[in-house]
């Protein structure tokens, strides 16, 4: 299995760097904390949605329990930074916490994935949902550790590392976007690699790759694990942003959010879910500022996408102006 494509790596990394620098300059041109907050969240939620789209868009598996990994990452990071490990690690705490968050969600995804990929269609969706809700129940039950339904309270320190102080808005903004862009560039490699094309083959016609000697189940499992680990990273960044973790992040409604983003942006273009996250966040910001009935507006928007446009915005734009 080849996970790396290499041809376009330099180009993608260059584009990523340019976008990052542009957003850093943007921070000073538009000194609005509200807009900076939206951009950070778009990247965090965008990572979450893009990781789910590995399964939905490229593999055709409608996972409905993806928030389990998001919450696992968030809680791991929070608990790690609240633990005494931070005293001995000092300035290495934040990187160590993020790495452990990714590690725990990867292990969890390996366990849940190995069981779930045996099932197909709606049964797969239901099993992922059941696992997620089981984790939600466990978070609520372990009051002593997780704070139960109150969430992980009390905050945690964010010791500076490598000159980066995440307590400062600019440092946090630059750091979050940098991590997200690196992940997106690497994910691009994965999706364009032979492994990534293998996923599309399994989606379109599972018998064919199997006849060619492909191990479909192994491909699915690896994709599931990678998706879970990226969701865990997104969760850990969200926990860093909010300085806490909440059980709602493991509730089923949280798994619906990336589905909306995928729908809004488009599942058949690589950056579609990121664009979906942008639409979702702008909508969220705009609507909640003007009305209490956010669900009504969001529901009508989703309904018009499902029945009207029938595909995500980026998919639609690409078909209209680029792909013939």
């Amino acid at each position: 299995m080849k996970f790396f494509k290499r041809d376009n790596f330099k180009r993608d990394a260059f584009i990523g760097l340019v976008v990052w620098i542009f957003l850093l300059i943007f921070f000073f041109i538009v000194p609005s904390p509200g807009i900076h907050d939206i951009i950070q969240k778009v990247f965090i939620l965008g990572l979450f949605a893009m990781s789910l789209n590995i399964l939905i868009g490229y593999l055709g598996l409608v996972a409905f329990g993806h928030a389990a990994f998001f919450a696992a990452g968030a809680y791991t990071l929070g608990l790690f930074l609240q633990s005494s490990a931070i005293v001995s690690l000092g300035s290495l705490s934040i990187p160590a916490a993020i790495i452990s968050a990714i590690f725990i969600s990867t292990v969890l995804a390996a366990f849940i994935g190995a069981i779930c990929i045996r099932l197909k269609d709606i049964y797969f969706s239901f099993l992922t949902l059941a696992f997620q809700m089981l984790i939600y129940s466990i978070i609520l039950a372990l009051v002593d550790i997780t704070g139960g339904d109150q969430g992980l309270m009390g905050g945690f320190p964010k010791p500076p590392f490598l000159g980066i102080n995440l307590g400062k808005p600019f440092d946090f903004y630059a750091f979050t976007i940098f991590i997200s862009i690196i992940t997106i560039v690497l994910l691009r490699q994965l999706i364009e690699s032979p492994f990534g094309y293998g996923l599309r083959m399994i989606r379109d016609n599972p018998e064919r790759p199997a006849a060619l000697g492909f191990n479909n189940q192994r491909h699915k499992l690896i994709a599931f694990i990678i998706a879970g680990s990226i969701a865990g990273l997104a969760g850990s960044l969200q926990a860093l942003l909010d300085v806490g973790a909440y059980p709602e992040w493991a509730f089923w409604a949280k798994s619906a959010e990336p589905l909306f983003m995928i729908l809004l942006g488009g599942m058949h273009s690589f950056l579609g879910p990121l664009m979906g996250a942008l639409i979702f966040e702008i909508l969220n910001d705009f609507v909640t500022a003007n009305t209490r009935y956010y669900g009504l507006v969001l529901g009508l928007v989703i309904l018009s996408f499902v029945l009207g446009l029938r595909r995500g915005l980026l998919d639609w734009l690409l078909i209209k102006f680029y792909r013939k």
Binding site: S125, L259, L296, G299, L303, V306
Partner: peptide
Amino acid sequence: ADLLVQILLCYSVILILDDLVMI
């Protein structure tokens, strides 16, 4: 339609009805 489309259609109706009853 795809399972995803069915789920999203129904979920949009949940969001709309939850707010409509509040209104």
